[in-house]
């Protein structure tokens, strides 16, 4: 008698048992970040690699170009020069630092030119606050130092600001402006209870809270800090400490480049 499972050695027989195909579920970015396996294979506390080059703009007194993953930023520094801004207060004891930050219209995934207006102004202020304490402004009375930063491509809002600050500080060094120290800047995002350094846009979209910390390593001074999002005090202190640690490492890389380029 033939059963339905009759053995026929002229055919390739099916296995006795079968299971449905196992489809891998797409992992959410948040989960993969928490499990320490980020999309680009980095560690939670490893920033993206930096590429730095100075002296790209001939006309400027100092300039720098910086790449950090997908982020591409160029910066030019003019000064010290007479104050050109109309209506600016000219001080007889200190110089004036002006930062102008701009996104190119193709720099992010959505093209918004008009709405960027106040955002660009705000980031310009952050830049001024982050760089101001590092410059010996008392050396340049009655003159202004102008820093122009253009983002060619961005990836992650805070990471882009952090890269802009690093780029600007290198351009200032290239312009031979007297400074107390080089400013490093680190961005971090909080996922559940762990801080993750230098997040891309895809990761920043799912963050719970974020920190942007600008730090002068040798004088151990925080020049600017912005934290957004609800955290406990212990967590935010952990985040600040982590940013300081990572900032010191980035500082070494920046100094290495600068001393080589001299």
């Amino acid at each position: 008698m033939f059963s339905s499972r009759a053995f026929d050695n002229r055919l390739v027989n099916v296995p006795e048992q079968s299971i449905p195909p196992f489809l891998e579920e797409p992992k959410s970015i948040k989960d993969s970040v928490i499990n320490n396996s980020r999309l680009d294979g980095r560690d939670q506390v490893t920033p993206r690699l930096l590429f730095i080059k100075t002296g790209l703009v001939d006309k400027a007194h100092g300039s720098a170009y910086l790449e950090q993953g997908k982020i591409k930023i160029s910066c030019a520094v003019y000064g010290p020069r007479p104050v050109v801004k109309a209506g600016a207060v000219i001080s007889a004891t200190t110089g004036n630092l002006e930062c102008e930050f701009s996104f190119s219209s193709f720099s992010s995934s959505w093209r918004t030119v008009k709405q960027r207006d106040t955002e660009e102004k705000e980031i310009s202020q952050i830049l001024t606050q982050a760089l101001g304490p590092s410059i010996c402004l008392h050396m340049f009375p009655k003159s202004s130092i102008d820093v122009y930063v253009t983002v060619i491509e961005s990836d992650g809002r805070l990471a882009t600001i952090a890269a802009a600050i690093k780029c600007a500080t290198i351009a200032l060094v290239d312009a031979s402006i007297d400074m107390f120290d080089v400013v490093t800047c680190v961005s971090a995002s909080l996922f559940n209870n762990s801080w993750v350094i230098d997040c891309t846009q895809a990761e920043e979209n799912e963050e719970d809270s974020s920190i942007l910390l600008s730090y002068m390593v040798s004088s151990q001074e925080i020049t600017n800090v912005i934290q957004t999002g609800k955290t406990s005090i212990e967590l935010s202190q952990n985040g600040l400490n982590l940013c300081v640690d990572v900032g010191s490492k980035i500082y070494q890389a920046m100094c290495q480049y600068l001393s080589k380029s001299l």
């Binding site: 606050q129 101001g132 020049t223 600017n224 800090v225 912005i226 934290q227 935010s236």
Partner: peptide, 10 residues
Amino acid sequence: EICSVQKGNF
């Protein structure tokens, strides 16, 4: 709970 921290003045 800390909601934001910001430093100003340069």
